[in-house]
Write a protein that binds this DNA or RNA. Sequence first.
DNA 1: GCCAACGTTGGC
DNA 2: GCCAACGTTGGC
Length: 138
Amino acid sequence: MTQFWLVKSEPEAFSWDQQVENGVEPWTGVRNHGAKLNLKAMKLGDRAFFYHSNTGKEIVGVVEVVREAYPDPTAEKGDWVSVDMKAVAPMPQPVTLAAIKADPSLAELALVRQSRLSVMPVSPAHWQQLCEMGKWKT
DNA sequence: GCCAACGTTGGC
DNA sequence: GCCAACGTTGGC
């Protein structure tokens, strides 16, 4: 069964434009145990919102998992993992954090509740709602 | 094993 | 630039 996620990146470090340009890109550098567990739970074909933190603060696109968890090549020690993500398409209309926070039905979203978590699950209901807000065409 | 100090992330 | 949240480190 396909699951849904949200991954964050500071656009100064790695932006949606770079993801689109590269096509498939390893998602490395996660150094938080909660986020690591989420990476490990990702399956081929799962989709994730690509969120720009810090600058932008909005969901800008959708990516798909094309390789499941493997040891993070950028980790010098510890058993951190990476997955490979492929750009699917940009959000026709980016969904801002402000819009998410303004909607009471999204108050349970981990993005709102745990602002520091960089990889988090999104429930199917929330996924659908966020897609509608972003004018996502399925 | 507890807890204070400190560092990092991310929103404002 | 500030501050809240929270993870990590180190003394006891």
